[in-house]
Design a protein around this nucleic acid. Structure first.
Length: 491
RNA sequence: CGGGGCGUAGCGCAGUCCGGUUAGCGCACCUGGUUUGGGACCAGGGGGUCGCAGGUUCGAAUCCUGCCGCCCCGACCA
């Protein structure tokens, strides 16, 4: 059935690439490392956007837009920030092309050199905090809760569609607060939005935690994250929320008068999720027949496929489908009738399986006779025949069930692939077998973290912050450890 | 930047070692017909600067030289 798609268990990354191609999500661009997101892939992103956007707005945030270009000097104002991003910035140096007099074609006009070079934003903290300086005078101007939907560029050496591309789409929230507690609270509010979005809509269970010093965002005091486990046992950072402390306020001199009339630096946060989430979606649920989309994110939730011998049968079935479609639309269920005559039903079945449409309805002469429909779930490939009576309600329930089952399956997978390592040997074995999340005691030093990374390729994904667990001894050095942390190989 | 691989129709490839009619196959595409409950079949058709440039030769996809591009593995990183 699964024609031309590599076996997920034999070659996971070839499987991943092929799903993207065959499900028509995206393709490579003429520029290395960039991607062309095709309509079907982009419609998934639009769904993610609309849901998250509502969640942000419901929690008091507003959208704004800051420019693509950032003066080079801005980037260098926050020391850690430069360190983290300087190596992967695209730089604009000129503003004009001209015809080459000797050869054919265009060349950069050497006369059109910019006085100050511009960088293409790898993230927007600097340009935004530069504005906040002007927006904020008093505690009465705070908090500022801004989000923007944008593209950013980070010049990557090795790229993979959706997971790591040189240009990607994301949202970046940037908030400013009058005190530390409120900023931390904001950071966690967003983390919870991310985790419930991932679980309730994407069907992906996540681990919430704090990044270690070496993994945190360049310029943050603390980076909180949601980490998900992919089907090949590797971890994926799905979203991050940074408590910036007063770092950017100090770098850009953003002060405000507090209620006592004293000047103080503003407290900041920033947070984002990107088109990488589409990669997470693919690698969490899909199988050897193609993509599997949770109903809450599927651009098409239901596809209807007619089976017919004659034109009169065709007309009758399409007619029936139109009626069902009206009923489903009333229940807010999106559906598509595939009325094409030039493809056989079997061809269409395979096509929509590849594209991950959660539920398929088929009807043919036999169904017309008996007043039934055949429905087939994408997630478990099970088929059943239901009667036309109250079909819409039944279908709605099944979609809800699919959503739950997808999450349940992913949770089971994660639980079965979470392990405790009591000593370093056991740890190494677990890593070698791609055993997912590995909980182990760590002495908290960068040195030990680095040693583990270079010897095993596993990194600290996060330090869990809600169920902290008990103190113990570091698996490498035997020094005291406050709690177990989560290691894994990661994307 | 190191190591490996590849460039031939929209896609995937054969042909290259050992030069020789008009460059071939599968998928896709177009036309007509028969089909349609799990990727239909038959017949016909369209589509190529063989990555680019130069050289050797009566003759180059094939041999030689240079260049360009892409992919994979490492170093680096969300």
């Amino acid at each position: 059935m699964s024609k031309g798609i590599p076996d997920k268990n034999k070659d996971f990354s070839a499987w991943y690439n092929e799903i993207i191609k065959k499900a028509d999500l995206a393709e490579n661009s003429p520029v290395r490392g960039c991607m062309i997101i095709k309509p079907y892939g982009y419609s998934i992103w639009e769904k993610m956007q609309s849901i998250l956007d509502k969640m942000f707005k419901d929690s008091g945030h507003y959208n704004a837009y800051f420019p693509l270009f950032i003066p080079k000097s801005y980037l260098s104002k926050e020391a850690d920030h430069v360190e983290g991003f300087a190596k992967e910035c695209a730089v604009v140096t000129h503003y004009r092309l001209k015809n080459d007099e000797n050869k054919k074609g265009l060349i950069v006009d050497p006369k059109a050199k910019l006085e100050e070079e511009l960088i293409v934003r790898p993230t927007s903290e600097t340009v935004i905090w530069n504005s906040y300086k002007n927006w904020i005078q008093s505690y009465r101007d705070l908090p500022i809760l801004v989000n923007q939907w944008a593209n950013v560029v980070r010049w990557e050496m090795r790229t993979r569609l959706f997971l790591r591309t040189s240009e990607f789409l994301w949202q970046e929230g940037h908030t400013a607060h009058s005190n530390k507690d409120e900023a931390i609270k904001e950071t966690l509010t967003i983390l919870n939005i991310y985790s419930s979005f991932l679980e309730e809509y994407m069907g992906i269970p996540v681990l919430k935690g704090i990044k270690s010093e070496s993994e945190k965002f360049a310029g943050a005091v603390d980076t909180y994250c949601v980490e998900a486990l992919m089907q090949d046992g590797k971890a994926l950072q799905a979203g991050t929320s940074h408590f910036l402390g007063q770092n950017f306020a100090k770098a850009f001199d953003v002060q405000f008068a507090n209620s006592n009339g004293k000047m103080d630096y503003v407290w900041g946060t920033s947070w984002g999720v990107s088109t990488r989430l589409i990669g997470a979606l693919i690698m969490s649920h899909s199988d050897n027949n193609g993509l599997i989309l949770p109903p809450n994110l599927a651009p098409i939730q239901i596809v209807m496929i007619p089976i017919f011998n004659s034109d009169s049968e065709y007309d009758a079935i399409i007619n029936l489908f139109e009626k069902i479609k009206i009923g489903l639309l009333k229940l807010n269920i999106s559906c598509k009738i595939d009325a094409r005559k030039f493809h056989k039903p079997g061809w269409k079945f395979a096509e929509y399986e590849m594209k991950g449409v959660p539920l398929r309805i088929a009807a043919g002469p036999r169904d017309l006779e008996k007043n039934t429909l055949e429905i087939a779930r994408r997630d478990n490939l099970k088929k059943e025949t239901i009667s036309l009576d109250k079909a819409e309600q039944k279908i709605k329930k099944i979609l809800e069930l699919i959503q739950k089952d997808i999450l349940k399956k992913a949770k089971n997978f994660r639980d079965n692939n979470s392990h405790n390592a009591r000593d370093y040997d056991e740890f190494k074995n677990l890593v070698k077998n791609n055993s997912g999340f590995i909980y182990a005691h760590w002495d908290g030093t960068e040195k030990t973290e680095e040693k583990i990374k270079s010897e095993t390729k596993a990194t600290i994904r996060c330090i869990p912050y809600d169920n902290k667990g008990k103190p113990g001894k570091c698996i490498v050095t035997g020094k005291p450890s406050k709690q177990k942390v989560v290691f894994s190989k990661a994307y």
